[in-house]
């Protein structure tokens, strides 16, 4: 503001009673202030990037040596102090599949409701508020809910079924938001053309809207997979098992899972070999980041290659 005033003063020929600092130094002060500020900003970006890079580098350096095929495909042995993580990987895969089966149809249909049927009224606002809230519920509370309803009340016991249902609820907002965004991106004119030809609303959705929203919906599904694979708290008391001698055979069986395995190995197993811990962590990271990468690629190609 001082700079502004002094510039105005320069344009007016008299400045004697404007007790302002000399125009030149005022400008220099502000420029230096800007330089200092920008340096701090650049520094803060660095402060943020460094830990991220550190985390990833550490995981790769410490974990990669452990990631042999033997590690990935064998069972833990000697009280978890040796062997591999195969059952945890399989358990995670089963859980993720179960989560998708429950979350995707429901989430996509809810998104269809929001984009094709909902009017701007109180009910719609309530639904959107509910979605925001579901997204904000702490993951441990989902665990509690899953335990109370699926494990106990409905009697599924600590099982893949209970765990999948709990995780499905957790990732539901992810699916809904991505699917709705994809549906809204389909131009309205296609819906009009279809309805004008005498199609019913559902025919229009099924034949024109959904197929063209598919890449966006898939992005949401992949993001949901990434999320479900990495969560620990919701599965703590709904499905996770410390050690199982064999793979789960039905949806009512317990299962091991990668995030839980990492947690146990690093906090509950005394003298657990660091190689196994870092290897598990790296395996989990690769799966989760890999999924996120796939989602980002799909999203980018969808945006670029739209036929309309």
């Amino acid at each position: 503001m001082v700079a502004a005033a002094s510039m105005a003063a320069r344009n007016r020929p008299q400045a004697e009673d404007l007790r302002l600092p000399v125009h030149g130094t005022a400008r220099m002060n502000n420029r230096t202030r800007e330089l200092i500020a920008f340096t701090f900003l650049r520094l803060s970006a660095l402060i943020v990037v460094l830990p991220i890079a550190l985390i990833i580098c550490l995981l790769v350096i410490q974990g990669a040596p452990a990631l042999s095929l033997k590690f990935l495909f064998s069972y833990p042995s000697e009280g978890m102090r040796a062997g591999g993580i195969f059952p945890a990987i399989v358990g995670t895969i089963y859980l993720v599949l179960g989560t998708i089966v429950f979350a995707v149809p429901l989430g996509v249909m809810a998104a269809v409701y929001l984009s094709e049927y909902a009017r701007p009224n109180a009910l719609t606002r309530l639904i959107r508020l509910s979605i925001v809230n579901l997204a904000g519920v702490p993951s441990i509370v989902y665990g509690l809910f899953g335990f109370g309803i699926f494990v106990l009340l409905l009697g599924f016991g600590v099982s893949l079924l209970a765990g999948s249902l709990t995780l499905a609820l957790l990732v539901l907002p992810v699916v809904i938001v991505a699917a709705e965004e994809a549906l809204l991106s389909v131009p309205q004119t296609f819906r009009e053309a279809s309805l004008a030809l005498g199609a019913t609303k559902w025919q229009t959705i099924r034949r024109v809207v959904l197929p063209n929203a598919l890449p966006g919906v898939i992005t949401g599904v992949v993001l949901a997979i990434a999320r479900a694979a990495g969560e620990t708290a919701p599965i703590l008391f709904t499905v996770a098992a410390f050690y199982l001698p064999r793979l789960p055979r039905s949806i009512f069986d317990q299962a091991m899972a990668l995030p839980y395995h990492l947690f146990i190995m690093s906090t509950q197993v005394p003298n657990a070999p660091p190689g196994i811990q870092w290897g598990t962590a790296l395996a989990l990271l690769i799966i989760v980041l890999g999924m996120n990468l796939i989602a980002a690629v799909i999203r980018a190609r969808f945006r670029r290659r739209r036929p309309w």
Partner: peptide, 17 residues
């Protein structure tokens, strides 16, 4: 993307580190 990657890292992995 780097900042977004941070968001994707599972909390158990960050806790582990």
């Amino acid at each position: 993307p780097i900042v977004e990657t941070l968001a994707a890292i599972p909390s158990v992995v960050i806790g582990f580190i």
